[in-house]
Structures are given as C-alpha cells and as structure tokens.
Design a binder for these strands. Sequence first.
DNA 1: AAGTCGGGGCG
DNA 2: CGCCCAGACTT
Length: 299
Amino acid sequence: MVTPFIRPAASKIKTLHARVRAFYRTRRRDLPWRRTRDPYRILVSEVMLQQTQVDRVIPKYAAFLSRFPTLASLARARLAEVLRVWVGLGYNGRALRLWRCARTIARDHGGAVPSKLETLYELPGVGTYTAAAVAAFAFGKRVPVVDVNVRRVLSRTMTGRDDASAQEVARIARAALPRTGNACWTQGLMDIGARFCRPSPRCERCPLRATCAYAKHGAPPIRAARRARGTFVDSERYYRGRIVRLLCAKPSVALADLGRQVKERFDARDGPWLERIAHKLAREGLIRIDERRDRVRLA
DNA sequence: AAGTCGGGGCG
DNA sequence: CGCCCAGACTT
C-alpha cells in the first residue's frame, strides 16, 4: 500500500527550487532556442522537440530558420518547401501542422504569435505541452510546463516513485510553480531530467540527490511493458517515410511507379497496400494525388 | 483510453 | 533487438 500523494511540503519545494535554479545558473545546456526570445523561433523549436531528442533537433532547427527566418516567410511558403527542410526529422505531420499554424497566426493574429495559453492551444500542432512551453519560454508566463523530463523529475523527487499519474504530476507542478523565474525552473528540470533523472536513473551525481524521495530507497524503475512494435523496416510507417522522402527529391511521380520506387523487391502484390498508404498521406494533406493524370506530388 | 505517427541513438 | 525521445491528434 503506497501512501497517496496529498500536498507537497512547501519546504521541500523551496529546496528543490534553490537546487534547480543553482544548477541552471551554472550548468545548463547551451541550446540555440535558449539564445532567443523570438516567439516564432521558440515555437519552431518546441514543435521540433515533440518526441524528438535535442541532439537531433539542433541541426534541423538551424536549417529551418535559415530557410524560414520569420513567421511571415513560413506562412507564405509552399508546404512542399517546408517538407523538404523537415524531412528526416520524423513525424512529417508536424511540418504540416506547423505550416498551418504559421498561416493561422498570419491570418488571425496579425502575424504575432499569441501569448495567451488558451489561444496558443487552439493552434494546429500546439497541444498542452507546447502551448505552455511557448507561454513560459517566449512570454515569461507563470504556467506549469510538463514534458516527459519534468514529469519524471517531479514524480521521483516528490513521490518517490517514477510512475506518478499525469494528473498527480500536474498537481505537483502547479504547487511547485515558482513566483518568478518559471522558465529557468522548468528548463532546469528538463536538463536534470535529461542528464541524471533519466528512465534509468543516474542518481550518483544528480544535484537533487539529497532532496529526492526516489534516490533514497533506490527502487529500480518499474515501467509498463510496451507493446511490441515489430521491425520498423517493412512497416507501414517505414513506407510512409519512404514515400515522403521520394517526393521531396522529385517534382512528381506516377502513382503506378510509386511502389517500385520506394520498395526493394517490389512485386505486383505490393501495389495495392502501398497505394493505400499514399491515399492516406493524401487525405492527411501531406501529398497530392492526381488520379486523372496518374501523378503524385508533395502537397 | 487506445492507436497512429519517424527516425535515430543507445544499452 | 527493445527502449526512449521538450507530444498531438484521431478514433
């Protein structure tokens, strides 16, 4: 029987604040999106960082901003151009939604990224996390920002477990919201989550070790078993990626040739399901299929 | 609540 | 090989 979490001790939170802020002041990661407060650039970074590690985002972030330096430039670009820069980063739907997001902001918000949490949340591709991140990092808003790192760190330090529910962590995050310096607090938690408080924890050198309920008893991380994903190659996802990559490299392709061009050892039986994947991509808005002329291209 | 959506790096 | 990642969106 585990003691249910009631309310975090104020003194413990104060100590965490001090330690996290001290860590952030002296040992934070030097990341490109921390060198600007341009809301557009913050927004781009946050969308890129969705389910994507920092090290993989850094080069794409630079390339993207070099090609689309302002929100207006992104909003007036063709989606195909955006996809060509994005491809390789994964989750291509994010590029589509970021592009739509920029167009929505240009059309409905005078080209200025909204600062209000609820308004941000309305934008395509902006969910609970990203809305909070932009509000906090670009506009200094005092709102809880909970990503997977923050969740792990708060769960472990405050409950002694690494599996606190999202709702429970949300309560803790609200209770722990600092009066000032929310962005530094949050990003400090993220850095600690990435360097020490990882899924397999490295408590030995963690700056929160002395304050952490989890580090004390040192229980091994227990996490829910994930469903097997199978091999990625030859999965439907794999060929979605192949199709988008192919179309990034060519202006257009015949639908009848698509399968042969994305699949090794293509045979006639592969035609229908690869074509079905293409139609799904078209329905999502990533590619365009001209049935009459038998041509496929980026949207 | 559960599925879908990329891709790469690491243990 | 399986697990993980500054999640969002659909069903």
